[in-house]
């Protein structure tokens, strides 16, 4: 499950196009804020924070990123700002409550496995806890919250929404990145414009 991550587009960085027609001022301003104005912790408590950081690390390990995306900060910001996504399942608490409850329960799950808290587990162990949670093999009290929904629709969905809208995540997968006013000309398979990632270097698949 773990192991190293092979990058098919090692040299590609969408930010290299900052001054090109692929970017316009509106996009530059959005990305400038994202890159330069990372908010601090405002919603979560100091006690909850290490659990959140450990959770982000387990979901999206970034050891190989020289400048990791501050996932926890953006989760905190979305909750602090009350940013919704349009849906609340009837069996789910409101997102702020769900996150608090979930982080506490993750610590309890770690405790039930003999650790001090979730953050003190190593990455393998964190992954094992999360797989148990996803499968409903629970040892702690989640107060009736549907755990799979919490884990997949809230935790995973929010983390990937932050990571893969960030230039770091976009570059990693060879996505073209911002594209306005300039879009693309070559639409055929195995054809890329000169302002796209060069052909990927693939491991065996």
């Amino acid at each position: 499950m773990s192991g190293t991550f092979h990058r098919p587009y090692p040299a590609w960085n969408v930010l290299d196009k900052w001054d090109s027609p692929s970017f316009n001022d509106t996009t530059r301003e959005v990305l400038r804020q994202r890159l330069e104005e990372v908010p601090g912790r405002r919603f979560f408590t100091a006690d909850e924070w290490p659990t959140l950081v450990a959770l982000c690390d387990a979901v999206l390990p970034q050891d190989d990123n020289p400048d990791p995306v501050p996932l926890a900060n953006w989760i905190d910001a979305a909750l602090f700002e009350g940013r919704g996504n349009g849906t609340r399942h009837a069996d789910m608490p409101a997102p702020p409550d769900a996150w608090r409850l979930g982080l506490a329960a993750l610590d309890a799950e770690a405790g039930a496995r003999g650790a001090a808290d979730f953050a003190s587990l190593d990455r393998e162990e964190r992954g094992a806890v999360l797989r148990d949670v996803d499968a409903g093999r629970l040892r702690a009290d989640w107060q009736g919250m549907p755990v799979r929904r919490f884990f997949r629709n809230l935790v995973l969905a929010e983390i990937v929404a932050i990571y893969y809208s960030h230039p770091t995540g976009q570059s990693e997968i060879g996505f073209g990145g911002p594209a306005s006013p300039r879009g693309y000309v070559r639409l055929q398979p195995n054809r890329a414009d000169s302002w796209e990632a060069p052909p990927g270097k693939w491991e065996r698949t």
Partner: peptide, 13 residues
């Protein structure tokens, strides 16, 4: 999730 998630996403193109 984890490295497996990044691996699968790397097949995006």
């Amino acid at each position: 999730f984890g490295t497996e998630l990044r691996r699968q996403m790397a097949l995006y193109n």
